[in-house]
Design a protein around this nucleic acid. Structure first.
Length: 448
RNA sequence: GGAGAGGUGGCCGAGUGGUCGAUGGCGACAGUCUUGAAAACUGUUAAUCCCGCAAGGGGUUCGUGGGUUCGAAUCCCACCCUCUCCGCCA
């Protein structure tokens, strides 16, 4: 949701943002509806005020004839009022549908572009190939003196990933992680949770099934319905599916950001540093034929997501944006995985996002960087929808700013982990920082 | 799934057709008293929308949506949610 005063005074800003974000919405048409709605409101309210005033003096009336006359008048007014109220309800629905499609306006530093091909690289990191592997990040992408296997081949030969059986059980884009593959994923998640604990984040295991309001509140709906799994019940094979009207989250951002929905927080409690660890479910509708190989684009994965609620101040949220971006980079650096950070261009941004960085990690089998993290600044776009406020210094209530960023998402991150840590003999070395989470184990080898 | 009870302001809780946005208590805030604090006392204290530069005026909101009525927190219907008991079960 956006500041309506701003839409009314500067509609051109929103029309431009619509164009940049490929949102088909005529802002001037919205303003026409907005004006109609306000006019209808004024009329309806005038009639309601009259009815209330007459109602108030009704019990004091003694004269029977006069009373009957007024009842007759009020009955007529009531019928007229009912019509006006119905018209207003219809206008409200139209207004709301349009209003929910108004975009957040990208910040001035966001590059203009039509899609992800026009994202702009802002920095690269790679470990030194010095003996200790540490360094300032000015290294190059490590090279190998043997032929690399991709994660699918590695996973198969080590018996830690089973895609065919995943597909057999659950359809395309499904998989099993198995044995040390399953353990490696949990090691990555636990390492990340501990990292964020040190950074002052509170961990959440949130609901994976949420109601419609949470999906609207975080601005996935309306618009993203096709991307979410709706939970339904089929009571028999021949009967249609009944919807429970709950939805599987595509990210714990949905649950964790909604956590304080409808609340007014104390300034002293901000910023809130939260992280959700959850399974994430994505239908990936409309991506048929895209990234079909391996574990890159699948229907279900696990993710540790950072969520920030902070003061309504662009400077503060810019600082928080840097902080959660850095937290994620630190995880990749600890894993010694080469990555780059890009400024996401306007055409590749979500409806509510004001600024967004992606972190892309080097994936040898794809011979390029692949998106592994997504860091977004929303300002008050989500908090207006979720109604999350705080009491500012001056005593007024303001909407918080919200932000979020991936900290680790698996199994996508297993692609670079397995591929970069493979050895000539077909084994995979376990990244040093993960070994404490795997009982000190150093390598994944073929099961004997 | 079966049976019952209930959803009222930040919280507790009264209110069964009109002057009720709603008694009272708690909490919070301000003040009096006090060296300070506590106690006591006094006062203030819902959200949201519309009109207005403002002062201010008006609408809506007693789980949600519909209905009855001149008028609904209060009556009727549907739905949602919570609690208790039973059943089933991790």
């Amino acid at each position: 949701m956006v500041d309506l005063d701003l839409v009314r005074s500067s509609p051109e800003l929103f029309q431009a943002a619509c164009k940049e974000k490929n949102i088909k919405l005529d802002v001037s048409a919205f303003l026409v509806v907005d004006e109609k709605r306000r006019t209808a409101m004024a009329e309806t309210q005038k009639m309601q005020a009259e009815r209330n005033a007459v109602s108030k003096k009704m019990p004091t009336l003694k004269d029977k004839a006069e009373k009957e006359k007024i009842v007759k008048e009020m009955k007529a007014l009531g019928e007229k009022l009912k019509e006006h109220e119905a018209a207003l309800t219809a206008l409200d629905a139209e207004w709301l549908a349009m209003q929910l499609r108004l975009p957040g306006i990208p910040l001035a530093n966001v590059p203009k572009g039509k899609d992800d091909s026009e994202n702009v690289e802002i920095r690269k990191w790679a470990p030194h190939q010095s003996p200790d592997g540490s360094g300032s990040g000015q290294g190059t992408i490590p090279t190998f003196d043997f032929e690399l296997k991709d994660h699918v081949a590695l996973g198969e030969s080590l018996d830690i990933i089973d895609i065919p059986r995943g597909v057999k059980i659950a359809g395309a884009r499904s998989y099993f992680l198995k044995g040390d593959g399953a353990r490696l994923e949990f090691a990555l998640l636990m390492f990340t949770l501990d990292h964020l604990k040190r950074k002052g984040f509170t961990a959440f295991i949130p609901p994976l099934l949420v109601n419609y309001d949470a999906m609207v509140g975080t601005s996935y709906f309306p618009g993203g319905e096709e991307m979410a799994y709706a939970v339904g019940v089929r009571k028999s094979q021949s009967q249609p599916i009944e919807s429970d009207d709950v939805y599987l989250i595509g990210t714990s951002e949905v649950s964790v950001t909604s956590y304080h929905g409808g609340e007014t927080l104390a300034l002293a409690d901000l910023p809130k540093r939260y992280c959700g660890i959850s399974n994430c479910f994505r239908r990936e509708a409309g991506t048929y034929g895209k990234d079909t190989h391996g574990l890159y684009r699948i229907h279900q994965f696990q993710k540790v997501e950072q969520v920030i609620l902070c003061e309504n101040d662009p400077e503060v949220s810019a600082k928080m944006h840097k902080e959660i971006l850095q937290n994620a980079e630190e995880v990749l650096q600890a894993l010694k995985l080469p990555y780059r950070v890009v400024d996401v261009c306007t055409g590749d941004m979500g409806q509510g996002q004001m600024y967004k960085n992606d972190i892309e990690t080097w994936m040898p089998s794809r011979k390029r960087y692949g998106e592994t993290h997504s860091c977004s600044t929303f300002h008050d776009f989500q908090s207006r929808r979720l109604n999350i406020k705080y009491t500012a210094k001056d005593g007024t209530k303001k909407f918080v700013h919200t932000l979020n960023n991936t900290c680790i998402a698996s199994p996508r991150i297993l692609i670079p982990v397995l591929e970069m840590y493979q050895n000539a003999d077909g084994t995979v070395t376990i990244p040093e920082v993960l070994r404490p989470y795997m009982g000190g184990q150093e390598k994944i080898s073929k099961p004997s």
